[in-house]
Amino acid sequence: MGFSSLKQLMSLCIISMALFSDLKLAKSASPDYTNLIYKGCARQRFSDPSGLYSQALSAMYGSLVTQSTKSRFYKTTTGTTSQSSITGLFQCRGDLSNNDCYNCVSRLPVLSGKLCGKTIASRVQLSGCYLLYEISGFAQISGMEMLFKTCGKNNVAGTGFEQRRDTAFGVLQNGVVSGHGFYATTYESIYVLGQCEGDVGDSDCNVCIKNALQKAQAECGSSISAQIYLHKCFIAYSYYPNGLPRGGGGSSPNYGSSGSSSSSSSSSSSGTTGKTVAIIVGGTAGVGFLVICLLFVKNLMKKKYDDY
């Protein structure tokens, strides 16, 4: 093999390494609104010898994903009979664009299938959206039931933080009601966000948000951040003593930060873990490919000199 062939091989190695690098960057740049917050799966799986439930579930998924291109909340019921009907809904965070809402919701059917399988009810919550479905006759739960919480590990007790946080909570509660279900704002370096399910009226929304805020105070104390998810609403806050990142109010901070968590269903950090694994695998594969290239070049050079 001549010098030109060796040169071509080295170019191939460099291009391949660049591709691995691009893959690594693409994995790490995944939008934070698609991070998995928690999942809730019913223990009972549905019996489906005729395939009616599967058809209804597939139709429901399709309808929800289609509607996510133009709405941040949609609820529907599918099925050929009342016994095999499935009611499902999705909701996107109020500050997501239509395109981001679609990108978020379109991931949920696959995630629900992977995380819960064909259970009679499922709820999957990402940072920016969630999907819920249940078959006809599934036992209803209170809208005030807490599904998941997470409290930041760091505390700021004794600094006046709790007073500022409680004032921010009051602003949030009023804002969610006047905003008819969604509100986000900043008060003295505390970013607060709240949202009610799209079909909840203002009065019930007010009660739900108040309940969630009280749980945040009781469960998380002086933690600098928290997320509280009730069945019909959720709230989140983060304190930034050095000022909000990215200029603050225009975009919500990433609530996927580390902290203690508790849930009535399984919780997961698989979104972050998945990206980490992908980066490690991509990097390892890239290094391995480079080593193979170098060994191949070495063998070719050795053969060339042996021929002489």
Rank of each mutant, 00 (worst) to 15 (best):
V176Y: 07
E188A: 13
A157K: 12
S178Q: 15
F161W: 07
H180T: 12
N154L: 14
V192N: 06
G175Q: 09
E188Y: 08
Q173N: 13
F182P: 01
K153R: 14
K153M: 13
R164D: 15
G158Q: 10
G152R: 07
Q195I: 00
E162W: 00
G175H: 10
Q195P: 08
T185P: 04
A157T: 09
A168E: 06
G160P: 07
A168L: 04
A157G: 05
R165E: 00
L193D: 01
E188Q: 15
C196A: 08
C196E: 08
G160Q: 09
V192T: 14
V171N: 15
G179C: 07
V156L: 12
V192P: 01
T185E: 12
S178E: 12
Q173M: 06
V192L: 10
V176A: 09
G152Y: 05
G194W: 02
G170C: 02
G179T: 05
G170P: 01
D166Q: 14
S189I: 01
N154Y: 09
G170E: 12
Y187W: 13
E197N: 14
N174T: 11
V176F: 01
V192R: 02
T186Y: 04
S189A: 14
V171H: 13
G170I: 02
V192D: 09
Y183E: 07
T186W: 00
G152I: 03
K153P: 04
G160E: 12
R165F: 07
R165M: 07
Y183H: 15
A184H: 12
G160S: 11
Q163W: 03
F161R: 07
A184E: 13
T186K: 04
E197R: 15
G175E: 10
Y187S: 08
Y183F: 15
V177F: 02
Q163D: 13
R164C: 01
I190G: 05
H180F: 10
T159D: 03
G170Q: 14
Y187K: 03
D166Y: 00
T159K: 04
T167V: 11
G175L: 08
A184M: 13
N174Q: 15
T159P: 06
Y183D: 08
N174Y: 01
A168C: 08
N155I: 10
A157R: 11
G179E: 11
D166L: 12
N174I: 01
A168Y: 07
T167P: 01
A184I: 06
N174V: 02
Q163K: 15
K153F: 12
V176N: 05
H180L: 14
V171L: 14
V176M: 01
G170W: 06
A168R: 07
A157Y: 11
E162P: 00
S178H: 08
V171G: 11
F169P: 02
T159C: 09
T159N: 03
G194F: 06
A184T: 14
